[in-house]
Design a binder for these strands. Structure first.
Lengths: 210, 210
DNA sequence: AAAAATTAGTTCCACAAGGAATTGACTACC
DNA sequence: GGTAGTCAATTCCTTGTGGAACTAATTTTT
Protein backbone atom coordinates (compact mmCIF):
# COMPACT_ATOMS: atom_id res chain seq x y z
CA UNK A 1 0.00 0.00 0.00
CA UNK A 2 2.77 2.41 0.77
CA UNK A 3 4.97 1.12 -1.99
CA UNK A 4 3.50 2.90 -4.95
CA UNK A 5 6.37 5.36 -4.90
CA UNK A 6 9.11 4.33 -7.28
CA UNK A 7 10.92 7.67 -7.20
CA UNK A 8 11.94 7.39 -3.60
CA UNK A 9 13.36 3.93 -4.03
CA UNK A 10 15.47 5.08 -6.92
CA UNK A 11 16.80 7.93 -4.82
CA UNK A 12 17.58 5.72 -1.87
CA UNK A 13 19.34 3.24 -4.11
CA UNK A 14 21.37 5.92 -5.80
CA UNK A 15 22.69 7.06 -2.42
CA UNK A 16 23.65 3.69 -1.05
CA UNK A 17 27.33 4.40 -1.65
CA UNK A 18 29.69 6.24 0.67
CA UNK A 19 28.92 9.72 -0.57
CA UNK A 20 28.14 11.10 2.86
CA UNK A 21 31.71 11.70 3.93
CA UNK A 22 33.04 13.06 0.68
CA UNK A 23 30.27 15.58 0.39
CA UNK A 24 29.79 14.57 -3.21
CA UNK A 25 26.18 13.86 -3.87
CA UNK A 26 25.05 11.63 -6.68
CA UNK A 27 22.36 14.03 -7.77
CA UNK A 28 22.48 16.34 -10.68
CA UNK A 29 24.56 14.10 -12.87
CA UNK A 30 21.39 13.84 -14.83
CA UNK A 31 18.45 16.10 -14.13
CA UNK A 32 16.03 13.19 -14.02
CA UNK A 33 14.85 14.27 -10.58
CA UNK A 34 12.94 17.51 -10.49
CA UNK A 35 13.03 19.41 -7.24
CA UNK A 36 9.42 18.60 -6.57
CA UNK A 37 10.23 14.94 -6.84
CA UNK A 38 13.14 15.38 -4.47
CA UNK A 39 10.85 17.08 -1.98
CA UNK A 40 8.23 14.40 -2.26
CA UNK A 41 10.88 11.75 -1.92
CA UNK A 42 12.20 13.32 1.23
CA UNK A 43 8.77 13.75 2.74
CA UNK A 44 8.02 10.19 1.86
CA UNK A 45 11.21 8.97 3.50
CA UNK A 46 10.52 11.07 6.59
CA UNK A 47 7.10 9.55 6.99
CA UNK A 48 7.55 5.97 5.88
CA UNK A 49 11.23 5.06 6.21
CA UNK A 50 11.69 6.47 9.65
CA UNK A 51 12.67 4.54 12.76
CA UNK A 52 10.15 6.75 14.56
CA UNK A 53 7.70 6.65 11.74
CA UNK A 54 4.65 6.57 13.90
CA UNK A 55 5.65 9.73 15.71
CA UNK A 56 6.56 11.40 12.44
CA UNK A 57 3.19 10.56 11.04
CA UNK A 58 1.02 11.89 13.78
CA UNK A 59 3.21 14.94 13.98
CA UNK A 60 2.55 15.42 10.32
CA UNK A 61 -1.17 14.95 10.79
CA UNK A 62 -1.26 17.47 13.61
CA UNK A 63 0.68 19.94 11.52
CA UNK A 64 -1.48 19.52 8.49
CA UNK A 65 -4.54 20.04 10.60
CA UNK A 66 -3.45 22.97 12.71
CA UNK A 67 -1.48 25.05 10.29
CA UNK A 68 -4.24 26.00 7.87
CA UNK A 69 -6.88 26.38 10.56
CA UNK A 70 -4.92 28.63 12.84
CA UNK A 71 -3.60 30.79 10.03
CA UNK A 72 -7.21 31.18 8.97
CA UNK A 73 -8.18 32.18 12.51
CA UNK A 74 -5.35 34.69 12.52
CA UNK A 75 -6.54 36.29 9.29
CA UNK A 76 -10.22 36.10 10.07
CA UNK A 77 -10.31 37.19 13.70
CA UNK A 78 -6.87 38.61 14.36
CA UNK A 79 -6.34 36.13 17.15
CA UNK A 80 -3.18 34.18 17.79
CA UNK A 81 -3.27 30.48 18.33
CA UNK A 82 -3.05 30.74 22.12
CA UNK A 83 -5.76 33.33 22.18
CA UNK A 84 -8.08 31.17 20.18
CA UNK A 85 -7.23 28.20 22.36
CA UNK A 86 -8.45 30.19 25.34
CA UNK A 87 -11.74 30.95 23.63
CA UNK A 88 -12.10 27.37 22.55
CA UNK A 89 -11.32 26.12 26.04
CA UNK A 90 -13.92 28.36 27.60
CA UNK A 91 -16.49 27.26 25.08
CA UNK A 92 -15.77 23.68 26.07
CA UNK A 93 -15.80 24.36 29.79
CA UNK A 94 -16.79 27.69 31.12
CA UNK A 95 -15.10 28.95 34.24
CA UNK A 96 -11.72 27.36 33.66
CA UNK A 97 -8.72 29.37 34.87
CA UNK A 98 -5.66 30.49 32.96
CA UNK A 99 -3.28 28.12 34.65
CA UNK A 100 -5.60 25.20 34.09
CA UNK A 101 -5.51 25.92 30.38
CA UNK A 102 -1.76 26.32 30.63
CA UNK A 103 -1.26 23.01 32.35
CA UNK A 104 -3.59 21.15 30.08
CA UNK A 105 -2.30 22.55 26.80
CA UNK A 106 1.37 23.02 27.74
CA UNK A 107 1.49 26.68 26.83
CA UNK A 108 3.61 28.54 29.38
CA UNK A 109 1.53 30.41 31.86
CA UNK A 110 2.88 33.85 31.08
CA UNK A 111 1.95 33.34 27.45
CA UNK A 112 -1.50 32.49 28.66
CA UNK A 113 -1.60 35.48 30.94
CA UNK A 114 -0.95 37.74 27.97
CA UNK A 115 -3.56 36.01 25.87
CA UNK A 116 -6.14 36.33 28.62
CA UNK A 117 -5.35 40.00 29.10
CA UNK A 118 -5.71 40.75 25.43
CA UNK A 119 -8.95 38.82 25.13
CA UNK A 120 -10.36 40.60 28.14
CA UNK A 121 -9.36 43.95 26.70
CA UNK A 122 -11.04 43.03 23.41
CA UNK A 123 -14.17 42.12 25.33
CA UNK A 124 -14.19 38.46 24.32
CA UNK A 125 -13.85 37.04 27.80
CA UNK A 126 -14.66 38.09 31.33
CA UNK A 127 -12.79 37.33 34.53
CA UNK A 128 -14.25 36.87 37.95
CA UNK A 129 -12.52 36.19 41.22
CA UNK A 130 -14.28 34.61 44.09
CA UNK A 131 -13.97 35.34 47.77
CA UNK A 132 -12.99 31.79 48.48
CA UNK A 133 -9.64 32.00 46.71
CA UNK A 134 -8.86 35.43 45.36
CA UNK A 135 -5.69 34.25 43.60
CA UNK A 136 -7.31 32.60 40.65
CA UNK A 137 -9.69 34.18 38.25
CA UNK A 138 -12.39 32.15 36.63
CA UNK A 139 -12.73 32.98 32.96
CA UNK A 140 -15.85 32.96 30.86
CA UNK A 141 -16.85 33.89 27.34
CA UNK A 142 -18.77 37.05 26.69
CA UNK A 143 -21.39 36.93 23.93
CA UNK A 144 -18.72 38.41 21.62
CA UNK A 145 -16.31 35.64 22.48
CA UNK A 146 -19.03 33.07 22.04
CA UNK A 147 -19.80 34.55 18.64
CA UNK A 148 -16.21 34.03 17.56
CA UNK A 149 -16.30 30.46 18.69
CA UNK A 150 -19.60 29.92 16.89
CA UNK A 151 -18.17 31.43 13.74
CA UNK A 152 -14.99 29.39 13.84
CA UNK A 153 -16.17 26.02 15.00
CA UNK A 154 -17.86 24.85 11.79
CA UNK A 155 -14.63 25.17 9.87
CA UNK A 156 -12.74 23.21 12.48
CA UNK A 157 -15.33 20.47 12.47
CA UNK A 158 -15.59 20.39 8.70
CA UNK A 159 -11.85 20.20 8.29
CA UNK A 160 -11.59 17.36 10.73
CA UNK A 161 -14.33 15.49 8.90
CA UNK A 162 -12.70 16.21 5.58
CA UNK A 163 -9.49 14.73 6.94
CA UNK A 164 -11.25 11.64 8.20
CA UNK A 165 -13.38 11.28 5.10
CA UNK A 166 -11.20 8.58 3.50
CA UNK A 167 -12.08 6.33 6.43
CA UNK A 168 -15.36 4.54 6.85
CA UNK A 169 -17.28 5.22 10.03
CA UNK A 170 -16.14 1.93 11.45
CA UNK A 171 -12.56 2.75 10.64
CA UNK A 172 -12.92 6.16 12.26
CA UNK A 173 -14.23 4.50 15.38
CA UNK A 174 -11.36 2.03 15.36
CA UNK A 175 -8.83 4.80 14.96
CA UNK A 176 -10.36 6.71 17.81
CA UNK A 177 -10.47 3.68 20.04
CA UNK A 178 -6.81 2.85 19.43
CA UNK A 179 -5.71 6.39 20.10
CA UNK A 180 -7.84 6.43 23.21
CA UNK A 181 -6.15 3.30 24.43
CA UNK A 182 -2.74 4.91 24.05
CA UNK A 183 -3.83 8.05 25.80
CA UNK A 184 -5.51 6.35 28.71
CA UNK A 185 -2.29 4.49 29.37
CA UNK A 186 -0.56 7.86 29.42
CA UNK A 187 -2.95 9.16 32.03
CA UNK A 188 -2.50 6.07 34.13
CA UNK A 189 1.26 6.57 33.90
CA UNK A 190 0.87 10.18 35.01
CA UNK A 191 -1.11 9.49 38.15
CA UNK A 192 1.19 6.60 38.99
CA UNK A 193 4.24 8.90 38.75
CA UNK A 194 2.69 11.37 41.16
CA UNK A 195 3.66 9.23 44.08
CA UNK A 196 7.33 9.93 43.40
CA UNK A 197 7.15 13.23 41.54
CA UNK A 198 10.26 15.42 41.58
CA UNK A 199 10.08 17.72 38.60
CA UNK A 200 8.29 21.00 38.68
CA UNK A 201 7.19 21.42 35.11
CA UNK A 202 3.76 21.11 33.54
CA UNK A 203 1.98 18.43 35.52
CA UNK A 204 0.38 17.09 32.37
CA UNK A 205 3.75 16.75 30.66
CA UNK A 206 7.34 15.68 31.09
CA UNK A 207 7.14 12.51 33.12
CA UNK A 208 8.88 10.28 30.61
CA UNK A 209 11.63 12.57 29.46
CA UNK A 210 14.88 13.27 31.29
CA UNK B 1 -14.48 2.90 28.29
CA UNK B 2 -14.08 6.63 28.47
CA UNK B 3 -16.82 7.07 31.01
CA UNK B 4 -15.05 6.14 34.19
CA UNK B 5 -14.74 9.78 35.12
CA UNK B 6 -17.51 10.88 37.43
CA UNK B 7 -15.90 14.18 38.44
CA UNK B 8 -16.12 15.69 35.02
CA UNK B 9 -19.79 14.90 34.68
CA UNK B 10 -20.55 16.57 37.97
CA UNK B 11 -18.71 19.67 36.83
CA UNK B 12 -20.46 19.78 33.49
CA UNK B 13 -23.80 19.34 35.17
CA UNK B 14 -23.14 22.03 37.71
CA UNK B 15 -22.43 24.49 34.91
CA UNK B 16 -25.41 23.75 32.76
CA UNK B 17 -27.15 26.92 33.89
CA UNK B 18 -26.72 30.41 32.44
CA UNK B 19 -23.68 31.36 34.44
CA UNK B 20 -21.58 32.28 31.41
CA UNK B 21 -23.08 35.72 30.89
CA UNK B 22 -23.27 36.81 34.47
CA UNK B 23 -19.70 35.92 35.22
CA UNK B 24 -20.81 34.16 38.36
CA UNK B 25 -19.32 30.73 38.50
CA UNK B 26 -20.90 27.93 40.46
CA UNK B 27 -17.59 26.80 41.91
CA UNK B 28 -16.27 27.43 45.32
CA UNK B 29 -19.57 27.23 47.10
CA UNK B 30 -18.15 24.04 48.50
CA UNK B 31 -14.53 23.03 48.07
CA UNK B 32 -15.44 19.57 46.84
CA UNK B 33 -13.30 20.03 43.71
CA UNK B 34 -9.58 20.14 44.29
CA UNK B 35 -7.56 21.98 41.69
CA UNK B 36 -6.02 18.77 40.41
CA UNK B 37 -9.47 17.37 39.84
CA UNK B 38 -10.48 20.52 38.02
CA UNK B 39 -7.45 20.24 35.78
CA UNK B 40 -8.10 16.62 35.00
CA UNK B 41 -11.72 17.40 34.35
CA UNK B 42 -10.79 20.13 31.91
CA UNK B 43 -8.24 17.99 30.13
CA UNK B 44 -10.79 15.23 29.96
CA UNK B 45 -13.38 17.56 28.47
CA UNK B 46 -10.88 18.93 25.98
CA UNK B 47 -10.04 15.48 24.75
CA UNK B 48 -13.33 13.62 24.94
CA UNK B 49 -16.17 16.15 24.89
CA UNK B 50 -14.83 18.17 22.03
CA UNK B 51 -16.52 18.73 18.66
CA UNK B 52 -13.03 18.36 17.20
CA UNK B 53 -12.05 15.61 19.53
CA UNK B 54 -10.04 13.68 17.05
CA UNK B 55 -7.85 16.67 16.26
CA UNK B 56 -7.49 17.46 19.93
CA UNK B 57 -6.39 13.94 20.61
CA UNK B 58 -3.68 13.63 18.05
CA UNK B 59 -2.49 17.08 18.93
CA UNK B 60 -2.20 15.88 22.47
CA UNK B 61 -0.34 12.77 21.42
CA UNK B 62 2.09 14.77 19.34
CA UNK B 63 2.67 17.14 22.21
CA UNK B 64 3.19 14.40 24.73
CA UNK B 65 5.67 12.77 22.44
CA UNK B 66 7.67 15.78 21.31
CA UNK B 67 7.86 17.87 24.42
CA UNK B 68 9.93 15.53 26.61
CA UNK B 69 12.13 14.30 23.79
CA UNK B 70 13.10 17.68 22.44
CA UNK B 71 13.67 19.17 25.84
CA UNK B 72 15.97 16.22 26.50
CA UNK B 73 17.80 16.89 23.22
CA UNK B 74 18.18 20.50 24.25
CA UNK B 75 19.71 19.60 27.60
CA UNK B 76 21.80 16.74 26.30
CA UNK B 77 23.22 18.18 23.10
CA UNK B 78 22.45 21.88 23.29
CA UNK B 79 20.53 21.68 20.05
CA UNK B 80 17.21 23.34 19.37
CA UNK B 81 14.35 21.42 17.88
CA UNK B 82 14.94 22.71 14.35
CA UNK B 83 18.62 21.93 14.59
CA UNK B 84 17.95 18.40 15.63
CA UNK B 85 15.36 18.06 12.90
CA UNK B 86 18.07 18.93 10.40
CA UNK B 87 20.36 16.26 11.79
CA UNK B 88 17.55 13.75 11.85
CA UNK B 89 16.56 14.61 8.30
CA UNK B 90 20.07 14.14 7.01
CA UNK B 91 20.36 10.83 8.80
CA UNK B 92 17.20 9.74 7.03
CA UNK B 93 18.24 11.05 3.64
CA UNK B 94 21.67 12.39 3.09
CA UNK B 95 22.10 15.24 0.66
CA UNK B 96 18.79 16.93 1.27
CA UNK B 97 18.81 20.73 1.04
CA UNK B 98 17.69 23.29 3.58
CA UNK B 99 14.63 24.38 1.67
CA UNK B 100 13.56 20.80 1.14
CA UNK B 101 13.59 20.29 4.88
CA UNK B 102 11.76 23.58 5.27
CA UNK B 103 9.03 22.65 2.83
CA UNK B 104 8.60 19.20 4.22
CA UNK B 105 8.53 20.13 7.88
CA UNK B 106 6.91 23.57 7.63
CA UNK B 107 9.66 25.40 9.44
CA UNK B 108 10.25 28.77 7.80
CA UNK B 109 13.30 28.77 5.62
CA UNK B 110 15.14 31.48 7.47
CA UNK B 111 14.83 29.49 10.65
CA UNK B 112 16.32 26.59 8.78
CA UNK B 113 19.07 28.71 7.38
CA UNK B 114 20.11 29.67 10.87
CA UNK B 115 19.97 26.09 12.07
CA UNK B 116 22.09 24.93 9.15
CA UNK B 117 24.65 27.66 9.75
CA UNK B 118 24.98 26.81 13.41
CA UNK B 119 25.26 23.09 12.76
CA UNK B 120 27.91 23.71 10.13
CA UNK B 121 29.83 25.94 12.51
CA UNK B 122 29.63 23.25 15.18
CA UNK B 123 30.96 20.75 12.68
CA UNK B 124 27.92 18.51 12.71
CA UNK B 125 27.03 18.91 9.06
CA UNK B 126 28.81 19.76 5.83
CA UNK B 127 27.54 21.66 2.84
CA UNK B 128 28.45 21.13 -0.77
CA UNK B 129 27.32 22.99 -3.83
CA UNK B 130 27.42 21.48 -7.24
CA UNK B 131 28.28 23.08 -10.55
CA UNK B 132 24.94 22.12 -11.97
CA UNK B 133 22.97 24.52 -9.76
CA UNK B 134 25.12 26.61 -7.50
CA UNK B 135 22.15 28.07 -5.65
CA UNK B 136 21.37 25.10 -3.51
CA UNK B 137 23.67 23.41 -1.08
CA UNK B 138 23.41 19.74 -0.44
CA UNK B 139 23.79 18.96 3.23
CA UNK B 140 25.31 15.91 4.81
CA UNK B 141 26.17 14.70 8.28
CA UNK B 142 29.75 14.68 9.45
CA UNK B 143 30.81 11.81 11.71
CA UNK B 144 30.14 14.15 14.65
CA UNK B 145 26.64 14.80 13.45
CA UNK B 146 26.10 11.12 12.86
CA UNK B 147 27.28 10.43 16.39
CA UNK B 148 24.65 12.75 17.77
CA UNK B 149 21.97 11.04 15.78
CA UNK B 150 23.20 7.65 16.90
CA UNK B 151 23.18 8.80 20.50
CA UNK B 152 19.71 10.29 20.31
CA UNK B 153 17.84 7.80 18.19
CA UNK B 154 17.44 5.01 20.74
CA UNK B 155 15.57 7.28 23.10
CA UNK B 156 13.24 8.40 20.35
CA UNK B 157 12.55 4.84 19.31
CA UNK B 158 12.14 3.63 22.87
CA UNK B 159 9.75 6.41 23.71
CA UNK B 160 7.65 5.70 20.68
CA UNK B 161 7.50 2.04 21.59
CA UNK B 162 6.67 2.88 25.18
CA UNK B 163 3.81 4.99 23.92
CA UNK B 164 2.52 2.23 21.68
CA UNK B 165 3.08 -0.46 24.27
CA UNK B 166 -0.57 -0.59 25.41
CA UNK B 167 -1.48 -1.77 21.91
CA UNK B 168 -0.92 -5.26 20.61
CA UNK B 169 1.16 -5.60 17.47
CA UNK B 170 -1.96 -6.12 15.41
CA UNK B 171 -3.50 -3.01 16.88
CA UNK B 172 -0.34 -1.04 16.17
CA UNK B 173 -0.48 -2.18 12.57
CA UNK B 174 -4.14 -1.23 12.34
CA UNK B 175 -3.45 2.19 13.77
CA UNK B 176 -0.65 2.72 11.31
CA UNK B 177 -2.72 1.58 8.39
CA UNK B 178 -5.60 3.89 9.27
CA UNK B 179 -3.32 6.87 9.67
CA UNK B 180 -1.63 5.98 6.41
CA UNK B 181 -4.97 5.97 4.67
CA UNK B 182 -5.72 9.47 5.90
CA UNK B 183 -2.33 10.74 4.89
CA UNK B 184 -2.32 9.21 1.45
CA UNK B 185 -5.60 10.96 0.78
CA UNK B 186 -3.89 14.19 1.82
CA UNK B 187 -1.10 13.64 -0.65
CA UNK B 188 -3.56 12.87 -3.41
CA UNK B 189 -5.39 16.08 -2.56
CA UNK B 190 -2.12 18.01 -2.73
CA UNK B 191 -1.10 16.86 -6.16
CA UNK B 192 -4.64 17.33 -7.40
CA UNK B 193 -4.62 20.93 -6.21
CA UNK B 194 -1.44 21.64 -8.10
CA UNK B 195 -3.34 21.92 -11.34
CA UNK B 196 -5.06 25.07 -10.07
CA UNK B 197 -2.57 26.30 -7.48
CA UNK B 198 -2.68 29.99 -6.51
CA UNK B 199 -1.17 30.32 -3.05
CA UNK B 200 2.49 30.82 -2.47
CA UNK B 201 3.09 29.23 0.91
CA UNK B 202 4.71 25.95 1.80
CA UNK B 203 3.83 23.60 -1.01
CA UNK B 204 3.28 20.74 1.39
CA UNK B 205 0.86 22.79 3.46
CA UNK B 206 -2.07 25.17 3.37
CA UNK B 207 -4.26 23.90 0.55
CA UNK B 208 -7.40 23.38 2.65
CA UNK B 209 -7.31 26.51 4.74
CA UNK B 210 -8.38 30.01 3.72
C1' DA C 1 19.83 37.20 -26.22
C1' DA C 2 18.01 40.59 -22.99
C1' DA C 3 14.32 41.09 -19.60
C1' DA C 4 11.17 39.19 -16.39
C1' DA C 5 10.10 35.65 -13.29
C1' DT C 6 11.46 31.95 -10.13
C1' DT C 7 14.31 29.74 -6.69
C1' DA C 8 17.97 28.82 -2.73
C1' DG C 9 19.79 30.92 0.80
C1' DT C 10 20.78 34.95 3.77
C1' DT C 11 19.99 39.22 6.38
C1' DC C 12 17.11 42.63 8.65
C1' DC C 13 13.96 43.79 11.97
C1' DA C 14 9.86 43.98 14.80
C1' DC C 15 7.52 41.27 17.82
C1' DA C 16 6.27 37.44 20.54
C1' DA C 17 7.69 33.50 23.37
C1' DG C 18 9.11 31.68 27.38
C1' DG C 19 12.50 31.25 31.48
C1' DA C 20 13.16 33.50 35.84
C1' DA C 21 12.16 36.52 39.28
C1' DT C 22 8.04 39.17 41.62
C1' DT C 23 3.62 40.12 43.89
C1' DG C 24 -0.29 38.92 46.22
C1' DA C 25 -3.20 35.25 48.32
C1' DC C 26 -3.48 31.13 50.63
C1' DT C 27 -1.93 26.75 53.27
C1' DA C 28 0.79 23.89 56.34
C1' DC C 29 3.79 23.22 59.84
C1' DC C 30 5.79 23.40 64.53
C1' DG D 1 -0.28 32.05 65.54
C1' DG D 2 3.77 33.26 63.19
C1' DT D 3 6.86 31.61 59.60
C1' DA D 4 8.04 28.93 55.64
C1' DG D 5 6.30 26.93 51.60
C1' DT D 6 2.99 26.85 47.71
C1' DC D 7 0.24 28.61 44.05
C1' DA D 8 -2.13 32.02 40.50
C1' DA D 9 -1.08 35.62 37.89
C1' DT D 10 1.91 39.20 36.26
C1' DT D 11 6.17 41.55 34.86
C1' DC D 12 10.94 41.64 33.28
C1' DC D 13 14.21 40.61 30.00
C1' DT D 14 16.72 37.92 26.88
C1' DT D 15 16.40 35.13 22.89
C1' DG D 16 14.41 33.11 18.92
C1' DT D 17 10.93 33.33 15.43
C1' DG D 18 9.23 34.28 11.27
C1' DG D 19 7.59 37.91 7.77
C1' DA D 20 9.64 40.71 4.32
C1' DA D 21 13.14 42.47 1.76
C1' DC D 22 17.55 41.22 -0.45
C1' DT D 23 21.35 38.76 -3.21
C1' DA D 24 22.86 35.58 -6.26
C1' DA D 25 21.97 31.79 -9.54
C1' DT D 26 18.95 29.89 -12.89
C1' DT D 27 14.98 29.46 -15.91
C1' DT D 28 11.46 31.20 -18.93
C1' DT D 29 9.61 34.37 -22.00
C1' DT D 30 9.35 36.83 -26.20
Amino acid sequence: MTDNYPVEHAVAASMADGSANTGIIPFGTGSELLSRDRLDAFTHTRLWKNPCGFAARFNYLALRYNQPLYSWVEQEFGLSRVEFVVIYSLALMDGVTASEIASSTAFPKNTLSRAVNRLAKLGYIGRSTQAMDRRMQYLSLTPFGQAIYDAALPRFVAFEQEMLAPLSLVEQETLNALMAKVMLAMFAEDTKDDSEGDHERHPALVKHGA
